[in-house]
Computed example of a mutant assay.
Amino acid sequence: MDEEFVLTELDYKAVRSSGPGGQHANKTATKVELSFDVENSQALSDQEKKRIFNKLSGRINKEGILKMNSEDSRSQHTNKDIVTQNFLFEIKEVLKKPKRRKKTKPTRASKIKRLKAKKKKSEIKANRKDPLK
């Protein structure tokens, strides 16, 4: 993934933010919505696109567009920076390949320890029995 090329494919839209803020919130568009067309992106390979669709399917609409937004700050520029950072973080996390699990066997000491614990437990249970029967 070419990060700089991906950033050129992003579309931003400023809209009015919800919640408190008085007159400022009623007249300024501080919430920033980011949209990224995953399907038609030239910055991503087919394999990367497939991985993004699998992992972020809840955020991608039917047209194949990934949507994210930020309204944390009262500044439009700050919200744009925040949503861009969140987007890059999400994409990088999705594209990370998980480490393969290495199969391991129990050590000799752990086998002996387990067998000793089993033996001790069985002796405790055997000692509960009535000796006359």
Rank of each mutant, 00 (worst) to 15 (best):
Q23G: 05
K118N: 15
I91L: 12
K13C: 08
P131G: 06
K116A: 15
K67I: 11
T107Y: 05
P106Q: 02
D72L: 13
S35L: 07
S17V: 07
L44Y: 01
N69F: 14
Q76M: 11
E71P: 06
I65D: 03
K125T: 13
R128W: 11
E90K: 09
G22Q: 06
R128A: 08
K121L: 14
E39F: 01
K125G: 06
D37R: 00
F87L: 09
S57L: 04
K31H: 05
Q42Y: 08
K49N: 01
E123V: 13
V6H: 04
N40I: 03
K129C: 07
S35A: 03
K118M: 15
T84R: 12
H77D: 14
A14T: 08
K119E: 15
S41K: 01
V94C: 00
K27Q: 13
L88T: 09
K105G: 01
K67D: 04
L56I: 03
V83H: 06
I112C: 04
R128G: 07
A25H: 09
N127Y: 09
T28L: 09
D37W: 02
D81S: 12
L132F: 12
R101E: 05
T107C: 02
K102A: 04
I82A: 07
F5P: 02
I52R: 00
P98A: 00
P106D: 01
L95A: 00
G22K: 05
A25L: 10
V6A: 13
V94E: 00
Q42E: 13
N61H: 03
M1S: 12
G21W: 06
K50A: 10
K49E: 03
L7H: 08
R59P: 00
T78Q: 10
I112E: 13
V15G: 09
K113C: 05
A25Q: 10
I60A: 04
N127S: 14
P98Y: 00
K27V: 13
E9G: 05
F89G: 13
E93P: 03
P98G: 01
S41N: 01
E90Y: 08
F53T: 03
K50V: 02
S17Y: 06
D81C: 07
S122V: 11
K129Q: 13
S17I: 05
K27C: 06
Q47G: 03
L44Q: 01
G58E: 12
E90M: 13
I60Q: 03
G22Y: 05
K120T: 15
I124T: 14
I82H: 07
Q47I: 05
A14C: 11
K27D: 08
E39C: 02
P98V: 01
K31L: 12
E71K: 14
N127H: 10
K129H: 12
